[in-house]
């Protein structure tokens, strides 16, 4: 579903762009949940941002194929319509715009790009209620402004409600577990399973901790260090990392 080949990318424009991704290769087939772990500053969020097409990141080499298309040739909104979802490490606050309006416009833009009919206000609210309930989020939160005044954990939970509503084929989730309390972690983990565990979907799950993986149960685990995938294994790799740390596993 997603094939990244020898990807090189820099961040920070001007005269001095900094190379972050340095020949990253990774294949995620449909039906797979693939966890990415790696030290701080290794380039995990950079990978996520490059896949999403965030301005300020420049691809200097390599390719990304997504569902048979050249992902890097698409604008960010076209990537979303093609089925890509980015769960942000730091979800953005948008004062003055309600979640309901934002998500309805987002969903209907995606549907339009795919040649589908827009959802009516009533249909959308029904869907939103269902997904909010799945993540045990109060519907009142959805009426509030996007992420404004949300706690760190609430923002992450709201990201998953957004994912549920938009129903992507592929999700890149960047530290969705950070900031969540113990109960919220289980709810979010179960939400990821229910929304994304399907033969025709896949997930790239960026995390630092085993506790989310206990719930989501990845098929594969890769270590990203210094801009490359340096090791790939099964779920046991994450357990080894948790027990021994990066230095000893990568040595």
């Amino acid at each position: 579903m997603l094939t990244i080949t020898d990807l090189h990318a820099t961040v920070g424009g001007g005269d001095n762009p900094k190379p972050i991704l340095k020949g990253l290769t990774l294949h995620v087939p449909a039906g797979e949940i693939h966890a990415i772990m790696g030290p701080n500053g290794a380039g995990k969020s950079t990978l996520s941002n490059v896949l999403g097409g965030k301005p300020g990141y420049e691809v200097t080499g390599g390719s990304v194929e997504f569902r048979g298309q050249d992902l890097l040739a698409l604008d960010p909104h076209e990537r979303a319509a093609a089925g890509l979802f980015l769960g942000f490490q730091y979800p953005v606050e948008i004062p003055g715009v309600s979640n309901v309006q934002f998500l309805r416009e987002a969903l209907n833009s995606q549907r339009k790009a795919r040649g589908e009919e827009p959802l009516s206000g009533g249909e959308f609210l029904k869907l939103a209620k269902e997904k909010a309930a799945l993540l045990k989020m109060d519907m009142d939160m959805l009426k509030r402004q996007v992420n404004v005044g949300f706690s760190g954990g609430e923002k992450k939970r709201a990201e998953m409600v957004q994912m549920g509503i938009l129903d992507p084929a592929f999700a890149v989730l960047d530290e969705t577990d950070s900031g969540l309390d113990i109960d919220a972690l289980r709810i979010v983990g179960a939400g990821i399973n229910s929304i994304m565990r399907a033969p025709d979907k896949a997930v790239l799950l960026i995390t630092h901790y085993q506790r989310l993986l206990d719930v989501v149960k990845p098929d594969k685990v890769s270590i990203l260090a210094d801009g490359r995938i340096v090791e790939t294994g099964g779920p046991e790799l994450a357990l080894r990392l948790e027990a021994e740390g990066y230095d000893s596993v990568m040595a």
Partner: peptide, 12 residues
């Protein structure tokens, strides 16, 4: 905010 919105599917 603009990128966040585009990442959710809104055109520019």
């Amino acid at each position: 905010a603009r990128f966040y919105m585009m990442a959710r599917g809104l055109d520019p």
